[in-house]
Simulated assay, not measured.
Amino acid sequence: MGDTKPVYQRIADELRGRIDSGDLRVGAQLPSRSELKRAYEASDQTVDRAVRVLKAAGYAQGQFGRGVFVADRTPLGTLLRTTGAVDSPFASQLSPPGTSLDWEATSVAVPAPRAVARRLGIEAGDRVMCTRYEYMADRKPLQFATSWEPLAITEGTDVVFPERGPYARRGVRGRMAAIGVRVVRAAELVGSRTATSAEAETLGCSPGQCLTVLERTHYDEDNRPVETSDVVVRADRWQLEYVIDYTA
């Protein structure tokens, strides 16, 4: 019985198989559009659709004016999700060991978007401190994070700016403890979505490629949300590791 899959999917599957088997190695150029058209008796649109599938899955990336090449899908590292690590968006193990890690952050007070307000248990439009982080290894962007904290909690204190002042870079728990707020737990939701053009350009992937989004919220001992954040990484380059300790 013949293959009933759409031609574009058959092209994508067979190229993916060649990549997985090592026949097409990282950095190798994929067959040109004209070569694929001849081999599969396909149209330009069909071949282009197959290549878009490979790009979205992280198997290929285009180089302007040169062609499409096999992408490096080796995991960059692991995001550690342990009791000691969830406080920091960049609790990571990177490959190779010894990679230089750094981040940049900008903070601005904004009205809380509806979705953020719901996560923080406040009203939409209430003021929050929004901090956007860009994390880098050897000066190359690896992941993004956006954090929101209610200004009703931090305004007028030394911790209102997460990355400025005497408690900069202390993490949510350390900063909140400095103003008498005891953070006792964090909850995380892990999901996925496709990369925007801007995210793809910065993270070195293709628009539409799958990203992993980790939504984390910190709570104090009264079960009040005191911070919520989103961490965004390339799904094809990062693994999530959850360490679960059982206690009596």
Rank of each mutant, 00 (worst) to 15 (best):
P150F: 02
R169Y: 08
V7K: 14
V190A: 08
R216L: 01
L30Q: 00
Y167N: 10
T217V: 13
S197I: 08
V116P: 08
M1K: 11
P225I: 00
S92N: 06
S197E: 15
A115D: 15
I153R: 02
R170P: 04
R38S: 11
R18Y: 09
F161M: 13
G22H: 10
V226I: 15
A12I: 03
R10Y: 03
V184Q: 07
R170H: 15
G17S: 14
C205F: 09
R119I: 01
L101Y: 12
D72T: 04
A12E: 11
I19Q: 02
A112F: 11
K140C: 02
E35W: 06
R66T: 01
A187C: 11
D220H: 07
C205K: 05
R52C: 09
R16W: 06
C210V: 04
G58C: 07
Y167V: 00
Y242K: 13
R132L: 10
T131P: 06
L101S: 09
G98C: 06
G156N: 14
T196R: 06
A85H: 10
E221T: 06
A42W: 08
G165I: 03
Y246S: 07
K140I: 06
R38D: 07
E241P: 12
K37N: 11
P31I: 00
V159E: 00
R16K: 13
A50F: 01
Q45G: 11
E201T: 12
T157M: 05
V243I: 13
S34V: 09
R170I: 01
P225E: 05
I179M: 06
S197Q: 05
Y59E: 08
T154V: 15
P75N: 13
D44R: 12
A71M: 02
Y135Q: 13
G84P: 09
L80W: 02
V68R: 06
E35C: 05
A177S: 13
T146R: 08
S34W: 08
K37I: 06
T202A: 14
R81A: 14
K140R: 13
S34E: 07
A91F: 10
G17R: 07
A235W: 00
R234I: 04
R224M: 09
A60W: 02
V51C: 03
R164Q: 13
F144Y: 14
D87R: 04
C130S: 15
Y59Q: 09
E14A: 10
A12Q: 03
Y246P: 01
W148I: 00
T131D: 11
V68Y: 08
L24S: 00
M176V: 02
V108M: 15
P141W: 09
R66G: 05
A60M: 02
P111V: 04
L211R: 12
L203F: 09
V172D: 05
A60N: 01
Y219H: 05
G180D: 04
R234M: 15
K5E: 15
P31R: 02
I19D: 04
T46Y: 10
L240Y: 10
V190C: 12
R224P: 06
P31C: 01
A42T: 00
A248S: 03
E155A: 15
T83P: 04
A57T: 00
V116Q: 09
A91R: 08
R173C: 02
A198D: 14
S206Y: 13
L80H: 07
I244Y: 10
K140W: 07
R216C: 09
D126Q: 14
T212N: 15
V68A: 12
V128T: 03
G65I: 11
Y133N: 09
R33P: 05
I244K: 06
Q93I: 07
Q45K: 12
